[in-house]
Design a protein around this nucleic acid. Structure first.
Length: 479
RNA sequence: GCCUCUUUAGCUCAGCUGGUUAGAGCGCCGGACUGUUAAUCCGUAGGUCCUAGGUUCGAAUCCUAGAAGAGGCGCCA
C-alpha cells in the first residue's frame, strides 16, 4: 500500500478495473453531501469521483477538503452506484497536501465572470473553462509542429530582438540596456545608441517573415512559431501587445499555392482538435450555449461551436479578389441602405464591418480575399500584371476576422527596389533582404497566422485575453 | 489615437426623478439530511456603495478629476 504509485486521473478513467487499489492526487472541484469528492489533476477534462464514508474519517480532516484544496487519496476502484460516472474510488486514506481556506480563497464553485477570473490568473487555470482552453491551446501548438514536420518543413527560430525597424508591421517596443534617466546623449541631445548594448537601436520583433525568407531560399520550406510584439494601443478583444505567430515561408509557391497551404493548414488544426479533444470542446460549446441564453437571438452564434468547426473543415474556403469583393459590397443591402459606417470604394481597405458582412452574411464560411491594391499593402508583396494590385491575401474567419495575412513575395530585384523607394523603405538597411533577390532568388510565398486568433476560433472564446495565460495589453502586464 | 459603457456583500447583480436602518440569489459559517452530480432544507454573519474633491438640509444616486475593467472604431495577426 505504501509503495503504491500515483495513477493519473486520465488513465484511471480509461483503464482502471474494479477492485484496483489506487493512489490519486489532485485538486478538489466539488465536495458534495459530505461524501462525494470530484477530483481533477489536469490530465483530462473528466474528474474522478471519490466516495468518502464520513463516519470513518476525522471531522477535522474532512473540513479541510474544500474547494480547490489539494489532496491525495488511496482507495479501491468500484463500480459507481450513481449515474454520472462508471467507476469511482472508495477512499481508505486521505492526506491533505495543501488546504485552501474557503473564507479567504478568491474562487468559488459557481459561475464567475471571465473578467474576474482574468484578474486571478494564479488560479483561473483550475476552472473547467480555462483548463479546457489551455489544454486545447497546447494541442493546437503541437498540431502546428506536427503538420509542418509531417509535410517536410523546417522549424526556424527567428530573432526576438531585431536590429531593423523596416518591417513596417506596426509600432515597436524599444530594447535598450540604458536607463532612461542616464542614457548617454550625442551632441544633438539624442540618445546615443552607439554606446548601447548592441551598438545600435534595437526593438522587439513584429514579424519573423523577412528572416524566414532567408530560410525558405535555402531549406525550401520553413516556418516560424514565436512571440511577436506590437506597441499599438489597440483596445479590442482581438489584439494583444505580445502574441504568438506562425509564419510559413515556401520557395517556389505562388499565391495560389499559398492559399492552398493556408486552407489545408487551418483545416488540419481544427480536425486535430475535433479528433482529440472532444470532451473539452463539448464543455466549451455548452458553456457558450448557456451564456447565450441571456442574449437576444441576433446576438447568438448561428451554429454551435462544434458544428461551426465541422462546417469549416467540410467546406472549401471562398476565394475572391479584392475587386470582386468591392463590387459585391457595393451591391449589398447594407451598402445600399447606408448601413455601413465606412465607405466602400476601390483603393480603400476593407473595414471590419465589410469583412464581417462577406464572411458572416454573404458566404457564411471562411473567405480568402486576394489581389489587394498595392498602395494599402506592404512593400515586399509581389506586383501583379495590372500594376495596380499585389498578390496579397487575407484569410477571414467568422466572428474573428483576419486570422491569416500573407502574400507572394516580390522576387524581382528591380521591382522590389522600385517599391521600396516608392514606399520610403531604406534599401541600405535591408541590403541583405535585397541580396536574396540578387543571388539565387526565386518566386516564394508565405503568410502569418495569429496563433491566439486560431485558439479563439477553435475554443469559441470571444476575448483574446482569455486564450493566453498571461495577456499583455495596453496598460496591463500583470503576473 | 478616438468614442461609449461599467464599478454596490466573497461572487453575480437589483436599488426609479437625490429622501429613514442599502437588498436578492449564490457562496461562506452554524444546524438538519445523506448515493450526490451547480445536492436539498432552515438559520446567522457579511458593506469605505472604486478613490478624491464638489453641489445639496440630505448623495450609492447629480457634477469634476483619477483608477480599474469591458465594448466599439482605427491599426493589424
Amino acid at each position: 500500500m505504501s509503495s503504491l504509485r500515483r495513477t493519473e486521473i486520465a488513465s484511471l478513467l480509461k483503464e482502471a478495473t474494479v477492485n484496483d487499489e489506487v493512489l490519486v492526487k489532485g485538486w478538489v472541484r466539488a465536495f458534495r453531501a459530505n461524501r462525494f469528492i470530484a477530483l481533477n489533476d489536469g490530465s483530462s477534462f473528466g474528474n474522478v469521483q471519490v466516495v468518502v464514508d464520513f463516519e470513518n474519517f476525522d471531522e477535522a480532516l474532512l473540513k479541510q477538503i474544500s474547494f480547490h484544496s489539494c489532496i491525495e487519496v488511496k482507495g479501491t476502484v468500484v463500480e459507481s452506484q450513481g449515474s454520472g460516472q462508471n467507476i469511482e474510488i472508495v477512499a481508505k486514506e486521505i492526506v491533505i497536501l495543501g488546504g485552501s481556506n474557503p473564507d479567504e480563497y478568491s474562487l468559488q464553485p459557481k459561475k464567475q465572470t471571465l473578467e474576474y477570473l482574468r484578474e486571478k490568473a494564479q488560479f483561473r487555470m483550475r476552472t473547467n473553462t480555462f483548463s479546457a482552453v489551455f489544454r486545447i491551446r497546447h494541442a493546437i501548438s503541437f498540431a502546428i509542429h506536427k503538420f509542418y514536420n509531417d509535410n517536410g518543413y523546417y522549424h526556424m527560430h527567428t530573432p526576438i530582438i531585431t536590429g531593423s525597424d523596416a518591417e513596417g508591421a506596426g509600432e515597436m517596443f524599444h530594447v535598450t540596456s540604458f536607463s532612461p534617466d542616464t542614457a548617454p546623449r550625442d551632441e544633438t541631445g539624442k540618445v546615443d545608441y552607439k554606446q548601447d548594448f548592441f551598438g545600435k537601436e534595437t526593438n522587439l520583433t513584429v514579424s519573423g517573415q523577412l528572416q524566414a525568407e532567408m530560410g525558405a531560399l535555402a531549406l525550401g520550406k520553413v516556418y516560424t512559431f514565436g512571440p511577436t510584439f506590437r506597441a499599438e494601443k489597440s483596445n479590442t478583444s482581438r489584439h494583444l501587445a505580445e502574441f504568438w505567430m506562425i509564419e510559413p515561408e515556401v520557395a517556389f509557391n505562388d499565391i495560389n499555392d499559398n492559399m492552398d497551404l493556408a486552407e489545408s493548414f487551418s483545416k488540419y488544426l481544427i480536425n486535430y482538435i475535433l479528433d482529440n479533444y472532444a470532451e473539452d470542446l463539448a464543455f466549451l460549446e455548452k458553456r457558450i450555449l448557456d451564456a447565450e441564453k441571456q442574449l437576444p437571438k441576433e446576438k447568438r452564434r448561428e451554429m454551435p461551436l462544434i458544428e461551426t468547426l465541422r462546417f469549416v473543415v467540410d467546406n472549401d474556403f471562398e476565394r475572391i479578389t479584392y475587386t470582386d469583393a468591392i463590387n459585391l459590397l457595393r451591391n449589398s443591402k447594407p451598402y445600399k441602405k447606408g448601413r455601413f459606417e465606412n465607405d466602400v470604394a476601390w483603393g480603400k481597405d476593407l473595414q471590419s464591418e465589410h469583412e464581417r458582412w462577406l464572411v458572416e452574411k454573404k458566404f457564411k464560411k471562411p473567405v480568402i480575399v486576394v489581389d489587394y491594391p498595392k498602395d494599402i499593402k506592404a512593400f515586399y508583396m509581389r506586383s501583379n500584371e495590372d500594376d495596380k494590385t499585389v498578390a496579397a491575401m487575407d484569410v477571414l474567419f467568422p466572428g474573428i476576422g483576419e486570422v491569416m495575412g500573407g502574400s507572394q513575395r516580390e522576387e524581382r530585384h528591380d521591382m522590389l527596389v522600385k517599391r521600396m523607394n516608392e514606399m520610403d523603405v531604406s534599401t541600405e538597411e535591408l541590403d541583405w533582404y535585397l541580396d536574396l533577390r540578387k543571388f539565387g532568388g526565386c518566386p516564394h510565398s508565405g503568410f502569418g497566422m495569429g496563433f491566439e486568433r486560431m485558439v479563439m476560433f477553435i475554443t469559441g472564446m470571444s476575448n483574446i485575453r482569455d486564450v493566453i495565460p498571461f495577456p499583455r495589453t495596453p496598460g496591463s502586464a500583470e503576473f
